[in-house]
Write a protein that binds this DNA or RNA. Structure first.
Length: 600
RNA sequence: GGGCGCGUAGCCUAGCCUGGAUAGGGCACCGGGUUCCUAACCCGGUGGUCGAGGGUUCAAAUCCCUCCGCGCCCGCCA
């Protein structure tokens, strides 16, 4: 479907196709009129399919209109095709299988596309700023230890959504919400507040064999976490000590060590994400919401809410009967008997703070948070907030043996481990192809190939699909992979270097580009803006990954089919096409957060 | 038990919202391609009851109902 442009019928300056749509709609409209059907332009625009026909251009299905004309679909299509008045930008209008297929003059599409891409450069595929402010919260993993690859799906999807929405024109702020208040963070503080020789024996045993001072801080300070977690299950006295830490944190009397530890572990985690190109605009510490009194205010508002009720021991809850939450209990406790807040209450405070600054909120959440999302909606309603965040829910990454990644079960694959393995394989690959590159260059390329492969592997699948982690799949450098796209970029760069046209200018004559592979490549290049808009609106960032492969594929076919440097009259036009392809490949790689490589 | 998500060739996946032209890709497998711009590539081939059954419709992978299978959630945890 062709999206109507928000700016009306004025041709957009960002999408090559937009200039062709008005004459097509006008032409179809009067052809339909002459065939006995009146269709409003808006409806027509909505009916049009892009990428539809045998030629992959604009198609109009006549099935819904045929009844109005009292004709069989293909009869109507034939009539419309015959009645279509000649138009300079239209090459042919034909009927087939109930569709009217409109083919534009290739030369015009080539001209429009190349000029737009070369003019806009790295802004091609990006729309003019215009939307309301958006806050995308993602990752927000508790600072308790290194990332495992189950968590990294959130970070990669969230970061890519931020890139895509920025390209679509939205002013985006990304936030990482750091839960430094709950039991999990308290466990870390608790164990490190004791000298190591006073640690309970099982915890010391679990950590002793592993400890190394030169570890990354997330690994180092997070190391006892699994053992502590296991230990607490069996030791009520220790649980009480941790509960005391929780109370001290919430009352603001916790040792400063607490925040330092969380920060240290977080820094280690962020260093891993940084390798994947993932960075955040803002960090929000949960404890700061307590410190500035906003959690207290929310507790007050919730206690005064329409469905608030007080429990026998002084705890407070919301009766959620009318919200029909799929829970056995019909209430949500937001304040404990001892007066401390629960996670939901703090999350309400956090979302109110976000709504105060941003028009739209997006939370990227694992499917295990689905009920929490609905609970949050209910509590926002209770405090009188009319807006709701939108949730991008993704399925967990599981291990082949079944079940989620578990830190304790030993089934977790650490992100750092995955990247190390990927880099090793990439190095082997680079060295086997290029013995002429200096070692530093090999290292740089390998890092980009490895991280690109990992990012792409996560992005290629729709978020709602469950993913089973397999090393072989995650580390693929061929076919539908990040390196496949990077390779097309590198090939294009190489051609431009040899043409001594790395930076332009790129004079061309559109009429010189008429090989099927050339037209197909141009057509694919021209799709980028539509893909960006679709992905931003639907949050289907995997569509961008799919497009990247399609584009690289179109380039590779062109590369095999058409000589560039060895052609004569066509040479400079083909160089321009390669430049446009490289630009578009680079832009889509940026959207995916995969590094473009001029050499590989 | 309730809620949400998923089920498309041996494996992975797009399309599903908004029904429409021969269900697109990738891996694996088989057969080809490099005196020529990077073979991480390209060309050709084998392989499909779109979980099952019913319904709506001129038309269903797509919408509706029932069922089956898998995952997750249903805490004064986060």
């Amino acid at each position: 479907m062709v999206e109507p442009d928000a700016s009306g019928s004025r041709p957009s300056v960002v999408d090559p196709w937009d200039v062709f749509l008005p004459p097509i709609v006008a032409g179809l409209s009067s052809a339909l009129e002459r065939s006995g059907v009146t269709v409003p332009r808006d409806e027509l625009l909505d009916l049009l399919e892009r990428d539809g026909g045998p030629d992959g251009e604009i198609a109009l299905p006549t099935f819904r209109l045929a009844g109005r004309a009292k004709l069989a679909p293909n009869e109507l299509a034939e009539k419309v095709a015959a009645a279509f008045a000649p138009e300079p930008s239209i090459r042919a209008v034909s009927a087939k299988g109930g569709y009217v297929n409109v083919a534009v003059v290739p030369e015009r599409l080539v001209d429009r596309t190349l000029s737009l891409v070369l003019l806009r450069g790295d802004r091609y595929g990006h729309f003019e700023p215009g939307g309301g402010s958006v806050c995308i919260e993602h990752t927000s993993a508790n600072p308790t230890g290194p990332f495992h690859i189950g968590r990294v799906r959130n970070a990669i999807i969230g970061d890519t959504l931020a890139r895509v929405r920025r390209a679509s024109g939205d002013p985006v702020t990304t936030q990482y919400y750091i839960d430094d208040m709950g039991r999990q963070a308290a466990m870390i503080t608790w164990i490190w507040s004791k000298p190591q020789d006073e640690w309970p024996a099982p915890i010391r045993a679990a950590v002793d064999g592993l400890a190394r001072d030169d570890d990354k801080p997330d690994l180092r300070w997070g190391r006892p976490y699994p053992a502590v977690s296991a230990y607490l299950k069996e030791h009520a006295d220790a649980r009480e000590e941790v509960a005391e830490v929780v109370r001290r944190i919430e009352s603001g009397t916790a040792t400063p060590r607490h925040r330092e530890l969380a920060q240290a572990i977080l820094d280690g985690m962020l260093a891993s994400l940084d390798r994947l190109g993932i960075r955040f605009d803002e960090f929000v510490w949960e404890s700061s919401l307590v410190a500035d009194g906003s959690v207290d205010r929310v507790l007050g508002r919730l206690r005064a809410a329409p469905h608030a009720l007080e429990e026998a021991n002084g705890a407070w809850a919301i009766d959620t009967t009318s919200y029909r939450l799929p829970k056995e209990s019909t209430k949500v406790v937001f304040q404990r008997g001892d007066g401390t807040s629960l996670y939901v209450a703090r999350d309400v405070a956090y979302h109110l703070a976000k709504f105060a600054r941003f028009g739209t909120l997006v939370d990227v959440l694992g499917q295990d948070h689905q009920l929490h999302a609905r609970t949050l909606d209910a509590l926002l309603a209770e405090v009188g907030e009319p807006r709701r965040p939108s949730f991008l829910i993704y399925q967990d990454i599981t291990v082949p043996e079944g079940g989620r990644m578990s830190t304790r079960g030993g089934s977790a694959v650490w992100l750092d481990q995955l990247l190390a393995e990927a880099v090793e394989r990439a190095q082997k690959e680079v060295r086997s192809r290029r013995d002429d590159l200096p070692e530093a260059e090999v290292g740089r390329i390998s890092e980009a190939v490895a991280t690109g492969a990992v990012r792409y592997h996560v992005l290629r699948v729709a978020p709602e699909k469950p993913v089973v982690f397999r090393w072989e799949d995650a580390l693929s450098f061929e076919g539908r992979s990040g390196p496949f796209v990077q390779y097309a970029y590198a090939r294009a760069s190489s051609v431009l270097r040899k043409a001594e046209r790395d930076r332009g200018p790129y004079p061309y004559e559109a009429a010189r580009l008429r090989e099927p592979a050339e037209i197909e490549l141009v057509r694919t290049i021209a799709k980028l803006p539509g893909i960006v808009r679709y992905a931003a609106r639907s949050s289907h960032v995997h569509a961008v990954a799919g497009y990247a492969h399609e584009l690289a594929d179109a380039f590779n076919r062109f590369y095999e089919a058409v000589p560039v440097l060895r052609s004569d009259a066509e040479r400079s036009s083909r160089v321009a096409l390669v430049a446009a392809a490289r630009q578009t490949l680079g832009n889509v790689l940026d959207l995916l957060g995969v590094a473009p490589l001029p050499v590989m």
